[in-house]
Protein backbone atom coordinates (compact mmCIF):
# COMPACT_ATOMS: atom_id res chain seq x y z
CA UNK A 1 0.00 0.00 0.00
CA UNK A 2 1.39 3.36 -0.86
CA UNK A 3 1.86 6.04 1.69
CA UNK A 4 -0.54 8.22 -0.18
CA UNK A 5 -3.42 5.78 0.11
CA UNK A 6 -2.79 4.95 3.75
CA UNK A 7 -5.73 5.27 6.14
CA UNK A 8 -3.91 8.03 8.01
CA UNK A 9 -3.85 10.19 4.92
CA UNK A 10 -7.38 9.18 3.96
CA UNK A 11 -8.76 10.23 7.30
CA UNK A 12 -6.82 13.47 7.44
CA UNK A 13 -9.07 16.51 7.46
CA UNK A 14 -8.44 19.58 5.40
CA UNK A 15 -10.55 22.26 6.97
CA UNK A 16 -9.12 25.68 6.89
CA UNK A 17 -11.32 26.88 9.69
CA UNK A 18 -10.23 24.20 12.10
CA UNK A 19 -7.17 24.75 14.27
CA UNK A 20 -4.69 21.89 14.10
CA UNK A 21 -2.05 23.58 16.21
CA UNK A 22 -2.77 26.34 18.70
CA UNK A 23 0.08 28.36 20.05
CA UNK A 24 -0.94 30.17 23.21
CA UNK A 25 1.16 32.93 24.68
CA UNK A 26 4.42 31.14 24.04
CA UNK A 27 7.67 32.67 25.21
CA UNK A 28 11.21 31.47 24.80
CA UNK A 29 13.98 33.25 26.65
CA UNK A 30 17.62 32.25 26.37
CA UNK A 31 19.44 33.26 29.53
CA UNK A 32 22.72 35.05 28.93
CA UNK A 33 25.55 36.07 31.20
CA UNK A 34 23.89 34.61 34.29
CA UNK A 35 26.37 35.39 37.03
CA UNK A 36 27.02 33.51 40.22
CA UNK A 37 24.26 35.39 41.95
CA UNK A 38 21.74 34.26 39.36
CA UNK A 39 21.48 37.74 37.84
CA UNK A 40 22.04 38.24 34.15
CA UNK A 41 19.53 38.92 31.43
CA UNK A 42 17.90 36.93 28.70
CA UNK A 43 17.49 37.01 24.94
CA UNK A 44 13.74 37.27 24.59
CA UNK A 45 13.71 35.45 21.29
CA UNK A 46 9.99 34.71 21.38
CA UNK A 47 8.01 36.91 23.69
CA UNK A 48 4.34 36.10 24.06
CA UNK A 49 3.06 34.74 20.78
CA UNK A 50 -0.38 33.30 20.07
CA UNK A 51 -1.81 32.01 16.81
CA UNK A 52 -3.19 28.89 15.27
CA UNK A 53 -2.31 26.77 12.28
CA UNK A 54 -5.36 25.32 10.59
CA UNK A 55 -5.78 21.84 9.23
CA UNK A 56 -4.40 21.52 5.73
CA UNK A 57 -3.20 25.08 5.34
CA UNK A 58 0.19 26.67 4.91
CA UNK A 59 0.85 29.38 7.42
CA UNK A 60 3.76 31.56 6.34
CA UNK A 61 5.89 33.06 9.10
CA UNK A 62 8.00 35.99 7.97
CA UNK A 63 10.24 38.54 9.56
CA UNK A 64 13.76 39.85 9.48
CA UNK A 65 16.82 38.00 10.66
CA UNK A 66 16.93 37.45 14.40
CA UNK A 67 13.26 38.18 15.01
CA UNK A 68 12.75 34.71 16.46
CA UNK A 69 11.22 32.75 13.57
CA UNK A 70 13.45 29.72 13.90
CA UNK A 71 13.18 29.75 17.65
CA UNK A 72 9.39 29.77 17.42
CA UNK A 73 9.48 26.96 14.87
CA UNK A 74 11.70 24.91 17.13
CA UNK A 75 9.55 25.55 20.15
CA UNK A 76 6.49 24.38 18.23
CA UNK A 77 8.36 21.32 16.97
CA UNK A 78 9.43 20.70 20.58
CA UNK A 79 13.13 20.96 19.86
CA UNK A 80 13.49 23.77 22.37
CA UNK A 81 11.39 23.66 25.51
CA UNK A 82 9.18 26.74 25.72
CA UNK A 83 9.86 29.06 28.65
CA UNK A 84 6.13 29.45 29.11
CA UNK A 85 2.89 29.07 27.20
CA UNK A 86 1.10 26.24 25.48
CA UNK A 87 1.41 24.48 22.17
CA UNK A 88 -1.77 22.51 21.70
CA UNK A 89 -1.65 19.85 19.02
CA UNK A 90 -4.46 17.39 18.50
CA UNK A 91 -6.00 18.41 21.78
CA UNK A 92 -2.87 17.94 23.88
CA UNK A 93 -0.45 20.50 25.26
CA UNK A 94 3.02 19.53 24.03
CA UNK A 95 5.00 21.86 26.27
CA UNK A 96 4.92 19.82 29.49
CA UNK A 97 5.44 16.54 27.61
CA UNK A 98 8.72 14.79 28.20
CA UNK A 99 10.43 11.51 27.50
CA UNK A 100 8.69 8.69 25.72
CA UNK A 101 5.36 10.48 25.39
CA UNK A 102 6.98 13.40 23.58
CA UNK A 103 9.00 11.05 21.44
CA UNK A 104 5.83 9.26 20.32
CA UNK A 105 4.27 12.61 19.52
CA UNK A 106 7.05 13.42 17.08
CA UNK A 107 5.65 10.98 14.55
CA UNK A 108 2.94 13.49 13.80
CA UNK A 109 5.05 16.59 13.81
CA UNK A 110 8.14 16.94 11.69
CA UNK A 111 10.62 19.60 10.77
CA UNK A 112 12.51 20.51 7.62
CA UNK A 113 15.69 22.43 8.30
CA UNK A 114 17.23 25.43 6.63
CA UNK A 115 20.69 24.17 5.99
CA UNK A 116 20.72 21.05 3.83
CA UNK A 117 24.43 20.65 4.55
CA UNK A 118 24.31 20.82 8.33
CA UNK A 119 21.09 18.92 8.90
CA UNK A 120 22.19 15.58 7.47
CA UNK A 121 24.60 13.34 9.37
CA UNK A 122 27.68 13.10 7.13
CA UNK A 123 28.46 9.62 8.44
CA UNK A 124 25.18 8.02 7.43
CA UNK A 125 24.03 6.91 4.00
CA UNK A 126 20.91 8.34 2.47
CA UNK A 127 19.10 5.08 3.08
CA UNK A 128 20.05 5.11 6.75
CA UNK A 129 19.01 8.73 7.10
CA UNK A 130 15.60 8.24 5.58
CA UNK A 131 15.12 4.87 7.28
CA UNK A 132 16.06 6.09 10.74
CA UNK A 133 12.64 7.48 11.68
CA UNK A 134 11.07 4.12 10.85
CA UNK A 135 13.67 2.36 12.94
CA UNK A 136 13.09 4.72 15.85
CA UNK A 137 9.41 3.92 15.96
CA UNK A 138 9.77 0.27 14.99
CA UNK A 139 7.41 0.92 12.11
CA UNK A 140 8.91 -1.28 9.46
CA UNK A 141 11.84 -3.62 9.26
CA UNK A 142 13.95 -5.32 6.65
CA UNK A 143 12.42 -5.45 3.24
CA UNK A 144 9.40 -3.48 4.24
CA UNK A 145 11.52 -0.68 5.55
CA UNK A 146 13.59 -0.48 2.42
CA UNK A 147 10.42 -0.46 0.34
CA UNK A 148 9.10 2.46 2.30
CA UNK A 149 12.39 4.29 1.93
CA UNK A 150 12.36 3.64 -1.83
CA UNK A 151 8.84 4.92 -2.13
CA UNK A 152 9.51 8.09 -0.21
CA UNK A 153 12.69 8.74 -2.15
CA UNK A 154 10.81 8.44 -5.40
CA UNK A 155 8.06 10.67 -4.08
CA UNK A 156 10.63 13.33 -3.27
CA UNK A 157 12.35 13.09 -6.62
CA UNK A 158 15.39 11.12 -5.51
CA UNK A 159 16.63 8.13 -7.41
CA UNK A 160 16.41 5.09 -5.08
CA UNK A 161 19.61 3.74 -6.63
CA UNK A 162 21.45 6.30 -4.56
CA UNK A 163 20.38 4.67 -1.31
CA UNK A 164 23.93 3.86 -0.32
CA UNK A 165 25.48 7.20 -1.03
CA UNK A 166 26.56 9.73 1.55
CA UNK A 167 25.06 13.22 1.74
CA UNK A 168 28.20 14.94 0.52
CA UNK A 169 27.76 13.25 -2.83
CA UNK A 170 24.61 15.25 -3.46
CA UNK A 171 23.90 18.82 -4.43
CA UNK A 172 22.19 21.27 -2.11
CA UNK A 173 18.79 20.81 -3.72
CA UNK A 174 19.05 17.05 -3.57
CA UNK A 175 20.12 17.20 0.06
CA UNK A 176 17.08 19.27 0.82
CA UNK A 177 15.00 16.55 -0.84
CA UNK A 178 16.65 14.04 1.47
CA UNK A 179 15.67 16.21 4.43
CA UNK A 180 12.11 16.39 3.15
CA UNK A 181 12.01 12.62 2.60
CA UNK A 182 13.19 12.06 6.16
CA UNK A 183 10.38 14.23 7.46
CA UNK A 184 7.82 12.60 5.21
CA UNK A 185 8.62 8.96 5.85
CA UNK A 186 6.79 8.96 9.18
CA UNK A 187 3.70 10.22 7.43
CA UNK A 188 3.28 13.25 9.70
CA UNK A 189 0.31 15.57 9.78
CA UNK A 190 2.17 18.77 10.44
CA UNK A 191 5.52 19.97 9.15
CA UNK A 192 7.50 22.97 10.32
CA UNK A 193 9.70 24.07 7.41
CA UNK A 194 12.42 26.48 8.56
CA UNK A 195 13.59 28.40 5.50
CA UNK A 196 13.84 25.25 3.39
CA UNK A 197 14.95 27.04 0.24
CA UNK A 198 17.05 29.97 1.33
CA UNK A 199 20.30 28.03 1.20
CA UNK A 200 19.68 26.85 -2.35
CA UNK A 201 20.65 28.19 -5.75
CA UNK A 202 18.06 30.37 -7.43
CA UNK A 203 17.52 27.93 -10.24
CA UNK A 204 16.92 25.11 -7.74
CA UNK A 205 14.53 26.90 -5.38
CA UNK A 206 11.50 26.43 -7.60
CA UNK A 207 12.06 22.66 -7.65
CA UNK A 208 11.74 22.49 -3.88
CA UNK A 209 8.82 24.91 -3.70
CA UNK A 210 6.92 22.82 -6.24
CA UNK A 211 7.80 19.60 -4.45
CA UNK A 212 6.52 20.94 -1.15
CA UNK A 213 3.29 22.10 -2.73
CA UNK A 214 2.81 18.80 -4.44
CA UNK A 215 3.42 16.83 -1.24
CA UNK A 216 0.97 18.99 0.61
CA UNK A 217 -1.75 18.17 -1.88
CA UNK A 218 -1.02 14.48 -1.96
CA UNK A 219 -0.66 13.93 1.77
CA UNK A 220 -2.98 16.65 3.06
CA UNK A 221 -0.12 18.14 5.01
CA UNK A 222 -0.25 21.23 7.15
CA UNK A 223 2.78 23.50 6.95
CA UNK A 224 4.26 26.20 9.08
CA UNK A 225 6.49 27.73 6.45
CA UNK A 226 9.20 30.00 7.84
CA UNK A 227 10.94 32.36 5.45
CA UNK A 228 12.35 35.80 5.14
CA UNK A 229 11.54 35.89 1.44
CA UNK A 230 8.07 37.36 1.20
CA UNK A 231 7.67 36.47 -2.45
CA UNK A 232 7.95 32.76 -1.75
CA UNK A 233 5.62 33.06 1.18
CA UNK A 234 3.07 34.76 -0.99
CA UNK A 235 3.35 31.96 -3.48
CA UNK A 236 2.89 29.20 -0.92
CA UNK A 237 0.81 30.44 1.96
CA UNK A 238 -2.88 30.55 2.77
CA UNK A 239 -2.25 32.82 5.69
CA UNK A 240 0.76 34.84 6.77
CA UNK A 241 2.06 35.90 10.16
CA UNK A 242 4.57 38.76 10.35
CA UNK A 243 6.97 38.68 13.25
CA UNK A 244 9.10 41.46 14.65
CA UNK A 245 11.43 41.18 17.62
CA UNK A 246 9.79 38.14 19.19
CA UNK A 247 6.19 39.18 18.65
CA UNK A 248 3.57 38.72 15.97
CA UNK A 249 2.74 42.07 14.43
CA UNK A 250 0.12 41.05 11.97
CA UNK A 251 -1.61 37.88 10.90
CA UNK A 252 -4.20 37.47 8.18
CA UNK A 253 -4.91 35.54 5.06
CA UNK A 254 -2.29 35.91 2.45
CA UNK A 255 -4.34 38.08 0.17
CA UNK A 256 -5.20 40.68 2.78
CA UNK A 257 -1.65 40.86 4.05
CA UNK A 258 -0.19 41.50 0.62
CA UNK A 259 -2.93 43.67 -0.80
CA UNK A 260 -3.91 45.54 2.29
CA UNK A 261 -1.31 45.40 5.02
CA UNK A 262 -2.53 47.14 8.16
CA UNK A 263 0.64 47.20 10.23
CA UNK A 264 3.25 49.81 9.30
CA UNK A 265 6.01 47.25 9.64
CA UNK A 266 4.38 44.88 7.19
CA UNK A 267 3.84 47.75 4.84
CA UNK A 268 7.48 48.80 5.02
CA UNK A 269 8.62 45.22 4.63
CA UNK A 270 6.54 44.70 1.52
CA UNK A 271 7.59 47.97 -0.01
CA UNK A 272 11.27 47.08 0.51
CA UNK A 273 11.18 44.04 -1.72
CA UNK A 274 12.50 44.60 -5.20
CA UNK A 275 10.39 43.21 -8.02
CA UNK A 276 12.09 41.58 -11.01
CA UNK A 277 10.57 44.01 -13.44
CA UNK A 278 12.39 47.26 -14.23
CA UNK A 279 9.20 49.18 -15.00
CA UNK A 280 7.49 48.28 -11.75
CA UNK A 281 10.76 48.85 -9.95
CA UNK A 282 10.96 52.39 -11.26
CA UNK A 283 7.55 53.04 -9.75
CA UNK A 284 8.09 51.29 -6.46
CA UNK A 285 8.40 53.70 -3.55
CA UNK A 286 10.08 51.89 -0.70
CA UNK A 287 9.21 53.06 2.78
CA UNK A 288 12.71 53.26 4.13
CA UNK A 289 12.86 52.34 7.78
CA UNK A 290 15.47 54.05 9.88
CA UNK A 291 17.98 51.91 11.68
CA UNK A 292 17.78 48.22 12.31
CA UNK A 293 16.10 45.73 14.61
CA UNK A 294 16.87 46.59 18.25
CA UNK A 295 18.39 43.95 20.48
CA UNK A 296 15.99 41.29 21.77
CA UNK A 297 17.75 41.46 25.13
CA UNK A 298 15.94 44.63 26.07
CA UNK A 299 13.30 45.30 23.45
CA UNK A 300 11.77 48.80 23.27
CA UNK A 301 8.92 49.56 25.64
CA UNK A 302 5.35 49.83 24.46
CA UNK A 303 5.15 48.92 20.80
CA UNK A 304 8.40 47.17 19.89
CA UNK A 305 8.40 48.81 16.52
CA UNK A 306 8.20 52.37 17.79
CA UNK A 307 11.93 53.05 17.35
CA UNK A 308 11.59 52.59 13.60
CA UNK A 309 7.95 53.28 12.95
CA UNK A 310 7.26 56.09 10.49
CA UNK A 311 3.86 56.87 12.05
CA UNK A 312 4.61 56.36 15.71
CA UNK A 313 2.89 58.80 18.04
CA UNK A 314 4.27 59.50 21.44
CA UNK A 315 3.83 58.78 24.23
CA UNK A 316 1.15 56.20 23.44
CA UNK A 317 3.33 54.04 21.16
CA UNK A 318 6.24 53.95 23.59
CA UNK A 319 4.09 53.30 26.62
CA UNK A 320 1.23 51.04 25.67
CA UNK A 321 1.75 47.63 24.12
CA UNK A 322 -0.72 47.39 21.25
CA UNK A 323 -2.65 44.10 21.48
CA UNK A 324 -2.84 41.76 18.50
CA UNK A 325 -6.51 42.17 17.69
CA UNK A 326 -8.89 41.80 14.83
CA UNK A 327 -9.12 44.99 12.79
CA UNK A 328 -11.25 43.86 9.87
CA UNK A 329 -12.81 40.43 9.69
CA UNK A 330 -10.13 38.05 10.83
CA UNK A 331 -7.27 40.38 9.95
CA UNK A 332 -5.25 40.75 13.14
CA UNK A 333 -2.72 43.52 13.69
CA UNK A 334 -0.86 44.83 16.72
CA UNK A 335 -0.82 48.57 16.19
CA UNK A 336 -2.56 51.54 17.76
CA UNK A 337 -2.87 53.18 14.37
CA UNK A 338 -3.34 50.19 12.14
CA UNK A 339 -3.97 50.98 8.52
CA UNK A 340 -2.94 54.61 8.81
CA UNK A 341 0.37 54.45 6.96
Amino acid sequence: MTLEASPEVESRVVDKQLALVSVEDVTKHFPIGAGLLGGGSAVRAVDGVSFEVRAGETLGLVGESGCGKSTLGRVIAQLHPATSGKVIFQGQDLVPMRGEKLRRMRQELQMIFQDPYASLNPRMTVGEIIGEPLKNFGLARGKERSNRVHEVMRTCGLNPNFLNRYPHEFSGGQRQRIGIARALVLNPTFIVADEPISALDVSIQAQIVNLMEDLQNRFKLTYLFIAHDLSVVRHLSDRVAVMYLGKIMEIADSHSIYENPLHPYTKALLSSIPIPDPDLEAKRQPILLQGEIPSPVNPPSGCRFHTRCPIAQFPICSEQVPPLESKVDGHLAACHFAGQL
Binding site: A118, M124, N136, F137
Partner: peptide, 28 residues
Protein backbone atom coordinates in the same frame (compact mmCIF):
# COMPACT_ATOMS: atom_id res chain seq x y z
CA UNK B 1 24.20 21.60 18.96
CA UNK B 2 24.65 20.63 15.35
CA UNK B 3 21.58 20.68 13.21
CA UNK B 4 21.73 17.03 12.23
CA UNK B 5 21.59 16.02 15.88
CA UNK B 6 18.61 18.27 16.35
CA UNK B 7 17.09 16.72 13.23
CA UNK B 8 17.68 13.26 14.66
CA UNK B 9 15.92 14.27 17.82
CA UNK B 10 12.99 15.54 15.80
CA UNK B 11 12.52 12.17 14.15
CA UNK B 12 12.27 10.51 17.53
CA UNK B 13 15.76 9.13 18.00
CA UNK B 14 16.42 8.03 21.57
CA UNK B 15 19.44 9.30 23.50
CA UNK B 16 21.37 6.08 22.93
CA UNK B 17 20.84 6.44 19.21
CA UNK B 18 21.84 10.09 19.26
CA UNK B 19 25.06 9.20 21.05
CA UNK B 20 26.01 6.12 19.06
CA UNK B 21 24.73 6.94 15.59
CA UNK B 22 25.10 10.68 15.42
CA UNK B 23 27.58 12.04 17.90
CA UNK B 24 30.20 9.33 18.30
CA UNK B 25 30.77 8.59 14.59
CA UNK B 26 31.30 12.28 13.96
CA UNK B 27 33.84 12.58 16.75
CA UNK B 28 35.70 9.49 15.60
Amino acid sequence: EREFVEAARSIGTRDVGLLTRHILPNAL
